[in-house]
Design a protein around this nucleic acid. Structure first.
Lengths: 367, 367
DNA sequence: CTGAAAGCGCTAACAA
DNA sequence: TTGTTAGCGCTTTCAG
């Protein structure tokens, strides 16, 4: 197979025009407006291009002129590579990629790792808009995105940013339903394992203040939904242990569950605010010889494929659709001015990891 | 939280300079060469920028001027969204993303779906180079990439493209080892299930000609390795049934295995040229009441996480490292001229899906 | 340390 | 149907 010497000094539209003795407009038209010139002339131009190895108009120059980059930027909290690890993010990306593909638009993964707070990457991205996936309210990269004079759509968080579209789910309603389900099953002594509530690393109990002041609204909402459900049932939320983990991994789930079960061995149900954490917790429970759901009920949130396979009770949210919707919002926004908010539905999935509490004499005694 | 009106007509470097009564150079320097002007002046510039909502130099204009886009393009055979489904692709992407992040370079997913043979997306991508992931030798998008005057690195296939770097594994050696292992276990009557050999859809038996003339060298090589192993053992390769499937899914694996087992019920081992196919085949075997490995040995290729979990015998290849290496090749190529080829090692993973053929009287009778 | 001049390669009015 | 004229917004010598 034969390639090309990528070292050749590229021909330009101007040089092609000169070579052919036509104007630059004509060459440009040959590519962009075939109807604006005769077929034979166009063929002559294209033939000369082939001969000279002219690959067509330079994309960057064209973008400068047309003010269209033909790509949207994607901003994630985590390191870029995380996006390919986390099943939720992957689902979202898949949907977003689909939407971009349909609109023949590129998708630029902006190299904005949280370590470098190197906001420059955002300023350097040649894009027509940004999709922001679930970042902290005080994320400096996000701040930078807002500086850029291009439309932006946020998935999940931060919510309620003025002038910015958003797609998400009603996280609070989701956990409210889940919580009520557990209440109905008779659970009163529960423990909660949640994802990071703030940008600075914190692994441990999260008191009420922390639960409400975090910079991640999704977690705040999920906790609020649980709180509502259990408060309704007469449980004093202040007495419910809430443990926070910074990392979003199976390991963190196992680890958090261990801490929780160690400090509160009498809980009958463990609610995790994500499936990944829940799956980790499931492993830890098994490790400790606890049978799920006989000895402990476990629930998650997200409805990722892994959770489904494990039969986890969870709240499913439509990741792929979130991605597609985000893409649509960005790519098909005519010239509307008002921002749009799309809330997609969630669904309670009853798995095999939760069950009704067996009563033994007293009203409830899970142990 | 407060956002910005993204409708404002953006300030430009020139307008900022005018406002301040300094030259454009000075403003430019404030951003790009802080050492070229006094700190107070720089602060004045930056302050004015903040005040006027100037987000810094326009990325596209800067790219035109500097001839650097700050991004690399990624080309995949399949629809973009496939990349997030396939565990091999995902691993590769993760590694590549890591490399890009380190080099503070964006990663542009080029919207080159195989349906539209809309090569334009390639010509329109503002990138400093391309990474091509496992595409057909006659892929039109790839052809277009070769036209672009930027460096390119291919992962896996097409191999041997002049002037183009490549990273891959020795697929042939991998299946040779795997094949020999099966031979050692006593298997002589095998069936093979392989991935697509050509760009046009074909689902069914692949004769010798097709095995060698496909446009996907990886599959050619994997088949060649198996052929060598079994020929060594005195098996006539022409008698070995090879079934091809166009899709790369569990369903295709199941389906292909069904076809194979239907037509050749006496095979003792089923070799699949990918784990996904093998996992599908595993399901199908179970479906048919065949015990693996007692009744049928099954092997795959790739070593994806799912396969490991399933205890599949396979050949592991380092996807993440392939991605990182591809990134490195592209981003850290000084000004070398010669093309580089990197071959990463594979490893035979002995799982629980293969076992020695029990002999029953005769030399070998697997049934 | 600062400014003037010269484009990077292209497209879009508008004329011819 | 084709050409002329103006930039898009920026960086970079090179003088001051």
């Amino acid at each position: 197979m034969t390639g090309h010497p990528h070292t050749r000094r590229p021909a330009t539209l101007a040089s092609l025009a000169a070579e052919l003795g036509v104007s630059r407009t004509t060459v440009s038209n040959a590519y962009n407006r075939p109807d604006q010139l005769s077929a034979p002339l166009r063929e002559r131009v294209l033939e000369a291009a082939r001969r000279l190895g002219y690959p067509g108009p330079d994309p960057v120059a064209r973008s400068l002129r047309t003010r269209r980059a033909g790509a949207v930027g994607l901003l994630l909290t985590e390191a870029l590579s995380y996006a390919f690890r986390d099943p939720g993010a992957t689902g979202f990306l898949e949907g977003l990629a689909l939407a971009c593909e349909k609109a023949e638009t590129g998708l630029l993964l902006v190299p904005a790792s949280p370590e470098h707070s190197d906001v420059d990457a955002v300023y350097r991205a040649g894009v027509d808009g940004f999709v922001v996936y679930s970042v902290s309210e005080d994320d400096p990269h996000f701040r930078a995105v807002l500086q850029r004079p291009v439309p932006t759509v946020v998935c999940d968080q931060p919510a309620d940013v003025e002038g910015v579209d958003r797609v998400g789910v009603d996280d609070r309603a989701g956990t409210l339903t889940l919580g009520r389900h557990l209440v109905e099953l008779g659970h009163r002594r529960i423990g909660v394992l949640c994802m990071r509530l703030g940008s600075r690393r914190h692994d441990g109990p999260a008191d009420l203040a922390r639960q409400q002041l975090g910079s991640y609204s999704v977690q705040r909402e999920r906790l609020a939904g649980l709180r509502e459900a259990f408060t309704e049932a007469g449980v004093d939320w202040a007495s419910v242990p809430v443990i926070e983990r910074f990392e979003h991994t199976l390991g963190a789930g196992a680890d958090g569950a261990a801490a929780l079960l160690e400090a509160h061995p009498r809980i009958t149900a463990l609610v995790c605010t994500s499936d990944i954490l829940a799956l980790g917790a499931l492993g830890e429970a098994r490790e400790r010889g606890l049978r799920v759901p006989e000895d402990l009920s476990v629930a998650g949130f997200d409805g990722v494929p892994e959770a489904e396979r494990a039969g986890l009770t969870t709240v499913r949210q439509p990741f792929g659709e979130k991605g597609r919707e985000a893409g649509r919002l960005l790519l098909e926004r005519g010239d509307r001015n008002a921002s749009e908010h799309v809330t997609l539905p969630t669904e309670l999935i009853l798995g095999s990891t939760t069950r009704a509490l067996r009563r033994s004499g007293e009203f409830f005694s899970g142990w």
